[in-house]
Design a protein around this nucleic acid. Structure first.
Lengths: 315, 315
DNA sequence: GAGTGCGATAAGCTTTCCTTATGGATCTTC
DNA sequence: GAAGATCCATAAGGAAAGCTTATCGCACTC
């Protein structure tokens, strides 16, 4: 039995006529006759009494008519809901983010997206960059947002927002009143470093290498987990540390942290969205990616919120 | 979309695997792949994410899974109910009857049938013989029961029960003490006659013609509608009248009516069931007909309840 | 890296579904 | 009651869908 047979059968019962129903379904009368016969063979019972010009259902036919109406209604509702899912943005998006984008970049952006698409339910999970990428590939997160991304064939990365990683210290630190320090001074200075795998650490080490400095030469006095831990340690006077501008904007404004410009060395980076190359994305996830692209384009490269403040301090 | 596709899709979601589901449905994996692809083409969306070894539904797939489960459940229930209708005796039977069988023969029989088949709902409609036959042919009654039937090509008649039509009068009537009257006396006697079309009238007139008496010679002093009217008029001393033995049994026992035997003239008849030759009968109606046949055979010709009493009075 | 297993696709055969044509029965009109 | 119109069933033949076997690309395990 298929739904087309059921639809035809119910139409015949409604119209009390094979040929009227066949017309309405744009098939010929013999096709309609054959389909009902096929249905009767399958159910091993006569469904329609054709002994007179007006066709009426048998008892079995009445049972099938009743259930058939319900089934066809469910079918219609399923199609409508699936179509709505495709045309309207609804459903649930699970986003994973590392601390950089997860703590400071995504919350306001996701809040704005949710306002634009109230039908979307959003879940944000924060983890370190390496874990976020793995969980995207294992299909646990539909979209990831990270501060650093190593090219992998099964990953697609797109820029999300522009960030600057700056060297900071507490206001009581000798460098708080310096206008500039050299890179050699940075290498020697007691350093707070985030855990292995954190996006900031990856990017810093990468930029150091490009500047001819081996990261192993850094005077790392403490490994401090992720962004917030390193920040609080610096505020407490534990040393200098590299942090994302997005993460320190309020602290710089309150004077609890100072940005230390480095001569001839500046770390600008993008946060990236990452997704699995082979995964089919829901319409909601696609809408979120489109929203991110729009925001990135509007920010004209997506300057971080603290970029101008850091720039004026440097001039 | 057909229900087989839907069943396959739900099985794939349950098993998270095309090939496992295909096995269980006794088709090959490529057939399963093609069917799901066909469904996706029809609904214009991807339903299953196959990028990994475990197949999972997309958002649209989850919607279809939910509705699909409901639809398949309804399908199963429809089939079960239709099958039960065929195997168990259930449903509604509409029986039409003329006064003879309708007032006295069918009620106890239908009560007994109902006790044997509690799932059957029975509706009994009483009308005159002619109307009953017409309403059977127009498919309003599935089965009719009448006291007389004229052969018609579109009708099937079967014997239901044996009846005798006897001449009766009140106990105060001069004939109440007669052991026998002649047919000539009957012709001349003031007569109560049922309405044109009533089964008793048809049968009486038929037997009179066969005995060489034209029915128009009867001394009809009143036309009294149907059976009960004629009976009450006779009890009240309005004259003699022909009545069915089934109809007068209690009255004869109570002495409010007397049977008058007629020399050389006895009217024995069968009540008949009638049905349309071309109509498809429900299982319940067929069971009822089988029950009637059984009862008729058990009654060994189906003697009417008052037959022995009338016979002993005649001897 | 090699081997295994899964789903997609191609090619070809089988089954189902459609159409046109025709016949029998019901129904309406004269 | 006869003639004509209309309805549903059935037959025959072509088109479309569904099935199978074979093969390939990719994920996964050891």
């Amino acid at each position: 039995m298929d739904l087309r047979q059921l639809r035809l059968f119910c139409r015949i019962v409604d119209r009390k006529s094979f040929s009227l129903a066949a017309d309405e379904m744009h098939i010929t009368q013999p096709a309609a006759s054959q389909q009902v016969r096929s249905l009767e063979r399958e159910l091993k019972t006569v469904l329609l009494d054709r002994s007179r010009r007006t066709v009426v259902p048998t008892d079995a036919g009445q049972v099938l008519y009743r259930y058939g109406r319900e089934i066809l209604d469910l079918d219609e509702r399923a199609r409508t809901e699936i179509l709505d899912l495709g045309e309207l943005v609804a459903g649930r998006v699970v986003v994973g983010a590392s601390t950089g984008p997860g703590d400071n970049v995504l919350p306001p952006m996701l809040t704005e997206f949710k306002r634009a698409f109230p039908g979307v339910s959003i879940a944000l999970h924060v983890d370190d960059t390496h874990a976020v990428i793995e969980r995207v590939l294992s299909r646990e997160f539909e979209i990831g947002a990270v501060g650093a991304v190593t090219p992998r064939p099964e990953l697609i990365a797109e820029p999300l927002a522009r960030d600057e990683i700056v060297l900071v210290c507490s206001p009581t630190h000798p460098w708080a009143s310096r206008e500039m320090v050299t890179l050699d001074e940075v290498v020697a200075e007691p350093q707070l470093m985030q855990q292995r795998g954190a996006g900031v650490r990856i990017v810093v080490e990468d930029h150091l290498r490009r500047a001819g400095v081996r990261p192993e030469r850094l005077n790392v006095v403490m490994e401090m987990g992720l962004m917030e831990s390193a920040k609080q340690a610096a505020i407490a006077g534990g040393g200098v540390t590299f942090l994302s501008s997005w993460a320190i904007e309020p602290d710089v404004e309150h004077g609890t942290l100072s940005v230390v410009p480095i001569e001839g060395f500046r770390i600008l980076r993008d946060f990236y969205t990452v997704r699995s190359k082979t995964r089919v994305l829901s319409r909601a996830a696609e809408a979120l990616l489109a929203f991110f692209r729009e925001r990135y384009a509007e920010a004209d490269g997506g300057s971080p919120p603290g970029a101008s403040a850091a720039g004026s301090a440097g001039r």
